[in-house]
Design a protein around this nucleic acid. Structure first.
Length: 621
DNA sequence: ATGTGGGAG
DNA sequence: GGTTCTCCCACAT
């Protein structure tokens, strides 16, 4: 029997999914649209439609032609320009973030959010009066006990899995998983109400203990509803796992519906499972998580063999094996202030890009958008005192991608080509000249750079048949010296103390053995802060993070021992360099240290980081 | 550093 | 005759 991965169920995670987001943006703009079937068009397809349209048989990714045939009175609006959607998405994001303690609110695409509300739930469990659960009050502000909402702590709000119509009125232990999820259900209900009343957007919600489970359970009842995945999550020792609601819930899903399992992985899995039991050729019956999980001799090692190979991420077997058991220990990451890339693309019908003139014209259109996007997203708009606005980050690479159409086969049929090809080159610095106008920058960039890259991609003089052009800037380097206070950390103090801190640990004495010893030693020592009460920590949010982040990053990074950051970056422009990039999102709490890049949690370093922080605090200053 | 592939909405 | 417009991450070289 293959080992069953263990889940971390200490957290409470909420998932929000705005209902048919693009269509809702138009409805909020023009409320009259709410009562008609509404479809949002990009090129020749319906990218989304409202529920009135769905009632009449329309759906996502349908051809406009078909949509009109099925529902002749459908109202169609054009949604190729994403600016509006992007802006609304950011607004809703900061609205929700305003309610959540800490920074753990993650945006997935334009229309989904994951929230780690563990701290809020823990606090509200503490202040819960066990003798009057039906008249509970959920406090949204630690400092002001009047800010919050009333709720009934004997019932779950909204739907549950498995479904109990009354939301259950049960005597739950105060500190049980069920009670934490129950509070989560009331919190997400409150957030959904506020979103609708204040902003006009309805959302579907999910409540569980991980991003994976909250997202999956959220989609059980749509739209404008919410669902909580009920305990028990754990499996009794030596049972066949089926007494866990998580296993039951995961098992019922089509393998392709699981986040993290895309079409390629689903295809490989179905090949593996069906080649054994399938007598029919090409039998396309749906494959469930259960089918894969219980397949003979299935294990993380089997999955690694089936799914791994050249190009595949290492450890994919372990990861997928976990997912099949509902295990997702990745953290909700706080928002990044800048994106990692910006790209603009358009698709073209046959013959639309036949000549170099066509090509150049279209490239200029795309490039103008790109420069405008760079200015709106990357320029510091807080500077209004007449001086030149500063770039928050400089992309270092320009990339041009195309997707050629396939040549017709002998029977004249053309198969669809999904693949892109691309060329990259350093981004010239004139694109950062803020006082030059967009058109002339775009013209120059296309003429001197993009066209050259295009010729490398397509050496023929003309007659290419391209479906798609994409131009992107990537490889963004954040600028230094920006005091965008990420939770009041004092950088000056941090650097002044850093040397002393690191000396204690001898982390810069190289060698993994030394770091390992340091880690072990400190793990054995009790931290003076361990006994600190929860409220005390809550009222000083992020107090420890300044030095601890710096320190834990160094120790953890060294011990993690993945990439030597030998990067000897040569300096072209001084202001391109940043002093403060790698450490900025390392998260340290009394229980955890978390890698900002992969989200891995390393609790073994938490105590180390905290202890040293407080030692420093005592000695320094 | 550059290019490709897979995944997400 | 045939799906949009993005964004993110990891791997290979």
């Amino acid at each position: 029997m293959a080992a069953v991965p263990t889940r971390n169920d200490r957290r409470v995670i909420l998932h929000l999914d705005y209902d048919c987001f693009y269509a809702s943006v138009f409805e909020v703009e023009q409320p009259a649209l709410k009562s008609v079937p509404l479809a949002v068009q990009q090129k020749q397809i319906v990218v989304t439609c409202n529920y009135e349209a769905r009632r009449r048989g329309l759906h996502k990714l349908q051809l406009i032609k078909d949509a009109k045939r099925i529902c002749p009175d459908v109202v169609i609006v054009l949604g190729e320009d994403l600016t509006k959607f992007r802006d609304v998405s950011k607004e809703l994001y900061s609205f929700i973030r305003g309610f959540v303690w800490g920074e753990r609110v993650e945006r997935l695409g334009f229309d989904e959010l994951s929230l780690d509300v563990t701290d809020m739930i823990d606090y509200n469990l503490q202040i819960l009066n066990p003798h009057d659960l039906t008249n509970a009050f959920f406090q949204l502000d630690v400092k002001d006990p009047t800010v919050g909402f009333s709720y009934d702590a004997t019932r779950y709000l909204g739907k549950t899995v498995p479904l109990y119509p009354e939301g259950i009125a049960t005597p739950l232990e105060i500190d049980s998983l069920g009670m934490r999820l129950l509070l989560g259900s009331h919190l997400i209900g409150y957030l959904r109400t506020r979103m609708e009343h204040d902003k006009g957007f309805t959302a579907t919600g999910g409540v569980s203990t991980s991003k994976l489970l909250a997202k999956l359970v959220g989609s059980v009842h749509k739209p404008n509803q919410q669902t909580t995945l009920l305990p028990p999550y754990e499996t009794k020792h030596d049972s066949s796992l089926e007494d866990s609601n998580v296993i039951q819930f995961m098992d019922s899903h089509d393998i392709r519906k699981i986040p993290g399992i895309g079409s390629r992985l689903a295809q490989k899995l179905s090949h593996k499972v069906n080649s054994h039991s399938d007598a029919e050729g090409d039998g396309e019956r749906r494959l469930t998580v259960r089918d894969v999980r219980l397949f003979p001799s299935m294990s993380s090692a089997t999955l690694e063999r089936v799914l791994g190979g050249p190009g595949a991420p290492k450890g994919i077997g372990v990861k997928i094996w976990g997912i099949l058991h509902g295990v997702d220990n990745t953290n909700v990451m706080e928002a990044r202030d800048i994106p990692t890339q910006i790209s603009i693309e358009d698709t073209y019908g046959r013959g639309r890009l036949a000549t170099p003139e066509d090509l150049r014209r279209e490239l200029e259109v795309l490039t103008r958008s790109l420069i405008r996007r760079m200015r709106t997203d990357l320029l510091d708009d807080t500077v209004t005192d007449g001086t030149q606005p500063r770039w928050l980050a400089h992309p270092r690479t320009l990339r041009l991608s195309t997707r050629p159409r396939n040549a017709p086969e002998t029977d004249g049929a053309r198969s669809y080509n999904w693949n892109r090809i691309s060329r990259s080159a350093p981004l010239p610095s004139f694109v950062f000249h803020v006082d030059e106008n967009v058109d002339s920058i775009a013209e120059r960039l296309v003429h001197e750079h993009a066209m050259v890259m295009f010729r490398k991609l397509h050496p023929e003089k003309s007659g290419w048949d391209l479906q798609l052009l994409n131009i992107a800037v990537t490889n963004l380097v954040e600028s230094a010296g920006d005091q965008k206070q990420s939770r009041g950390r004092d950088i000056g103090k941090m650097f002044r103390q850093q040397e002393a801190v690191l000396k204690n640990w001898s982390v810069h004495e190289s060698g993994p053995a030394a770091e390992e010893r340091a880690a072990v030693d400190h793990r054995a020592t009790p931290s003076p802060r361990q006994a600190t009460s929860r409220e005390e920590r809550m009222q000083q949010p992020g107090d420890c993070t300044g030095v601890a982040v710096q320190v834990a990053a160094q120790v953890a990074a060294a011990a993690w021992n993945r990439n030597d950051q030998s990067g000897s970056e040569e300096s072209e422009d001084a202001d391109w360099q940043d002093e403060d990039e790698c450490d900025r999102s390392w998260r340290v709490s009394p229980a955890n240290v978390e890698c900002p890049l992969c989200g891995a949690v390393m609790p073994q370093f938490a105590q180390l980081a905290h202890q040293t922080f407080h030692a420093t605090e005592k000695g320094g200053d």
